[in-house]
């Protein structure tokens, strides 16, 4: 089975966001990068699918050449190959443009199943996976917490606020992965050494224009300083009053 794990290179969670003078983009100076949290779950699921059903796993990303670090880490965990679709505008490409590029590539690769994280931890859109499936006309199950694949068919469970939904589908399909689906493994040191012998290809692609543009960026408002309303049991009425009338959480 041709299995693909699509990953996104995102700033590490401790990155301090600063807005550039244009007011529309982030100053990336000093950023460190990592594979988006949920994409690590996607990679693990791709590897587990290969281990259970056979086939090979390719890790696919759109990004700069430097994304080789993240892709190699995924290969070290057990993927067989990596492809970086090199893109100078990788931080600015919108969801639909990204989905179009990925859909064309997945189709060209002959992918039968592709795993995405349910959301990228930088832009928080949860859009690229389902949009890619739509462009390809494939089945798509999002926010998956349990999955089995056999004989060209799959069953997936997804959790929502309203309960647990179980779905069956036929391949080809796109699965977006949620926390709880698996526990991503560490890249073993032997895997790291083996990874440098596995293929990692950089390919270019025909530019696809964005259909949505960023007009402006604003950082969240600074959190208000805390206030001590008093001490001990005597402070409880004041605390309840503050929670009810100021914070409005009661």
């Amino acid at each position: 089975m041709k299995i693909v794990a699509c990953i996104k290179r995102v700033p590490t969670t401790d990155a301090q966001a600063k807005i550039n003078a244009d007011g529309k983009s982030l100053d990336s100076a000093g950023f460190q990068y990592m594979t988006s949290f949920y994409d690590e779950i996607a990679v693990e699921q791709a590897i587990q699918t290969k281990e259970a059903s056979g086939g090979d796993v390719t890790v696919l990303t759109i990004g700069p050449s430097e994304a080789s670090k993240e892709v190699r880490e995924c290969i070290a965990k057990g993927a067989d190959a990596g492809i970086i679709m090199t893109d100078a505008d990788w931080t600015g490409r919108d969801n639909l443009a990204t989905a179009k590029v990925l859909a064309a590539k997945l189709s060209e690769m002959g992918a039968e199943i592709a795993f995405f994280g349910k959301v990228a931890t930088d832009r928080d859109n949860s859009a690229v996976g389902p949009m890619t499936a739509t462009k390809l006309g494939w089945a798509c199950v999002t926010d998956v917490v349990e999955l089995s694949i056999a004989d060209g068919k799959g069953t997936a469970k997804r959790e929502s606020e309203n309960g647990v939904e179980t779905l069956s589908f036929s391949l080809p399909a796109i699965i977006t992965c949620d926390k709880g689906l698996n526990e991503p493994r560490y890249a073993g040191l032997k895997g790291i050494m083996a990874a440098k012998k596995k293929p990692l290809e950089e390919v270019s692609f025909e530019d696809v224009p964005n259909q949505a543009q960023v007009d402006s960026l604003e950082l969240p408002a600074a959190r208000k300083e805390g206030r001590i309303v008093g001490e001990g049991a005597a402070a409880v009425p004041a605390l309840i009053d503050a929670l009810r009338n100021e914070a409005k959480v009661l």
């Binding site: 670090k69 880490e73 070290a76 560490y186 790291i192 440098k196």
Partner: peptide, 14 residues
Amino acid sequence: SEEERMVRDTVRSW
């Protein structure tokens, strides 16, 4: 090297 950094980062995370 890239491998050396990857080894270090893996053990650091663990």
